[in-house]
Computed example of a mutant assay.
Amino acid sequence: MTSANPPSDPGIDPERRGIQPGEEHSTKRARPKDTRKDRHRWELARGPITAFGETKVVSAWAKDARCTVNLQALRTRLALGWNPETAISRPRHERGVLEYTHAGRTMTLRGWADQSGIKYHTLWSRIKDSGMSFEAALDKGAEGAHFTQLVSAFGETKPVSHWAVDARANCAATTLLRRLAEGWEPERAIIEEPLSRSNLGSGLPYHAFGHSMGIEDWGRHTQIPAGMLVHRMERHQVTLEAALRSFGWAPSNAVDSADAELTEVTSAHLHPRDHIPAVSSDADPIFTVRRPAAPPAETQRRSPAAPLPSTRAPAAPAPSSPPPVRRR
């Protein structure tokens, strides 16, 4: 039995199907109107923009040394109504960082998770969901029998996860476990600095010249990119201190210490070469800047060299040609 309304064939002419011209699309559902509102006011990102006592167009501000984002991001911030100085100077992805201090060492929560062997989400849940203090969350230790293995060193006995967060520990819990499995002496396994680390930016401390800080902090302190430091350490199997010396850096020839390089200024006192690691959220923002030292001015200019006396003998005069003979 055939259906009274057989399905239409798109290849058949509409007039042969009994449909009048112009009615073949009448049965389709109309597309709903877009009712979304654009939050951007792009006119705010056009024309001259005034900030830090100067007036430039957006493309010129994007090339300014004080600008921390690219041109598109700067336009978007201005179109969203950001204050021009904040839109220019605030670093991208700026957000609160979970940092905790324990045993005289400050690291991010991710760094402490890598250091202690405790899973990041486990550590987060203990602090945020269970309401435990950071010390209590660390003291509970990592899960797994290998991390609860007791180790005796320096006259004390405690689990591997506790030794990893001890002030004397210079390696992570996983490195400590591997060293103990290889037969290292416990004291040496705890205090010896690894030759290289593969977790750039995790917050694990690197030790050099009597100081301990993360690799990103070492990069900011020495003005040597952190990636170059890690590459040098891994490729040549050297410590951080040796890598820094290979780049020609040491505390004795550093221009200033990290504390001396950081200063707080208002927007009116920013310099084009200032690096801005932080900005306060006040109505009148205060900028924490790292200001590189100005290159030393030349004390004296070299005078143009006097021409050297010639050692060549003077050229002999050209022989005079005889007077022409007139013919009669």
Results as ranks from 00 to 15, higher is better:
317 P>C: 15
265 V>S: 02
324 P>W: 10
56 K>S: 06
287 F>Q: 01
39 R>C: 12
52 F>D: 01
23 E>G: 04
123 L>T: 01
317 P>Q: 14
323 P>W: 15
270 L>N: 00
292 P>Y: 09
291 R>T: 08
96 G>E: 08
176 L>P: 07
47 G>N: 03
186 P>H: 00
297 A>K: 07
44 L>G: 03
72 Q>V: 13
113 A>S: 14
242 A>L: 05
15 E>S: 11
15 E>Q: 14
130 S>D: 13
114 D>C: 14
327 R>D: 11
199 N>I: 03
238 V>M: 08
200 L>N: 02
254 A>I: 02
86 T>H: 09
303 S>D: 06
158 K>T: 01
260 A>P: 00
294 A>G: 11
204 L>Q: 04
59 S>N: 10
56 K>N: 06
112 W>Q: 03
109 L>E: 00
202 S>N: 08
263 T>H: 11
87 A>Q: 09
274 D>M: 05
265 V>N: 01
62 A>G: 01
128 K>W: 12
80 L>W: 07
75 R>H: 06
52 F>T: 03
164 A>S: 10
200 L>C: 06
321 S>Q: 10
327 R>G: 15
174 T>G: 07
306 A>F: 05
274 D>G: 03
246 S>F: 02
147 F>D: 00
112 W>E: 00
157 T>C: 07
181 A>F: 01
326 R>C: 11
254 A>V: 02
